[in-house]
Computed example of a mutant assay.
Amino acid sequence: MVVGPGTVSDQVPVTPDPAEGSVPGKAIEGRSLGRIAWTRLKRDKVAMSGGYVIVFLILVAIFAPLIVKFLGDPPNEFHQNLIDTSTLAPKGGTGISGDHLFGVEPQNGRDIFSRVVYGARISLLIAFLATGLSVVIGSILGVVAGFFGGWVDALISRAMDVFLAFPLLVFSIALAGVIPDKAFGLTGDALRIALLVFIIGFFSWPYIGRIVRGQTLSLREREFVDAARSLGARGPYIIFKELLPNLVAPILIYATLLIPTNILFEAALSFLGVGVRPPTASWGGMLSDAARFYTIWHFMFFPGMAIFITVLAFNLFGDGLRDALDPKGRR
């Protein structure tokens, strides 16, 4: 049947075909999981503020000699002329001036600003190295225990229980006391730093090991693991190529939360006198020296604030990173 002009059919609008190029379209850009997590993290202003502080502290630790050259004096240089010989306190109460931004120490007159800056090198170096050691050991043993199960899981899990129940602080004090000034080809600060990294890192791996083991128990039942097995993949290949890449997020999150714990532990050991030995500057050692002069507020305030700000920055950034990588777990 032919429809003539003037009928309803002539009044129906015709939609242009996009294939003819009349309507240009915009291609949808795909985003990786890392980019999505970075977008979420950038929206968290508190976490980003913590990240900026962390970057600033790392730069301060790296460029400590340059900073001290322009803004202070060498950390172990005495300034007896700034000390009141009758009270052993800095002249003027604190000794804060344009040359000494945080004042000087009682009794010997060392520049507190320089020692706080150099103390950042010790605290961050030990914390990062110890965290790296515990992450490597805990991740490997945790994924092995979760993947193989059976007697392997039972053996590693019991080892975790033993390490978690170990009196680490007492052991650290005893071990630091019996190690001589020269051992394993190391001397001085290098030996003390290596000893602290070993004590903190080697005995902290069960914390992250238990988390990795629990995640592995869930991942090993997933389809991609079954697919790898069906293609003939063996255990080591599945662990390092399939499971560990999917465990990067929880490992990274826990590592950022473990670093401040290690900073506090290093400061506690230095405070007790079993950390880095004087005259090398460390935040915990400065607090230990300040305990004898508790009435002089600035001596304890600045190293204490350095520890507080550093730990707070890592905790805020770690919480934000956890929310960015695991939005379903957000409180």
Rank of each mutant, 00 (worst) to 15 (best):
Y237M: 12
F203K: 03
G21N: 10
A290Q: 06
F308E: 06
L168Y: 05
L272A: 11
G329M: 14
I67D: 09
V23F: 12
S97A: 02
P303Y: 06
P75H: 01
S97T: 00
I179G: 06
L195H: 03
P278C: 09
R234M: 13
G320C: 04
P206W: 05
I211E: 01
P250R: 01
G273D: 01
I126C: 03
F302M: 05
F102K: 02
G285N: 01
G188R: 10
D289Y: 07
D153T: 02
G232S: 04
M48P: 00
M286C: 01
G93W: 13
V8H: 11
S139V: 11
R115Q: 06
L269R: 06
I179E: 01
V53T: 13
I211K: 00
T187G: 14
I179Y: 10
F128R: 02
K182D: 13
L272T: 05
F163V: 15
F265A: 11
F184C: 09
K328N: 13
I173A: 03
A249M: 05
G132Y: 07
F308L: 15
S288L: 02
L129H: 02
V178P: 10
V276Q: 10
F148R: 14
L269H: 04
D319E: 12
V55L: 15
F301G: 07
L41T: 09
T15D: 14
D153G: 06
P13Y: 10
L195R: 10
G93M: 11
F163K: 01
F63D: 12
F299S: 05
L57W: 00
V46S: 12
A130M: 05
W205H: 04
E77L: 15
E266G: 07
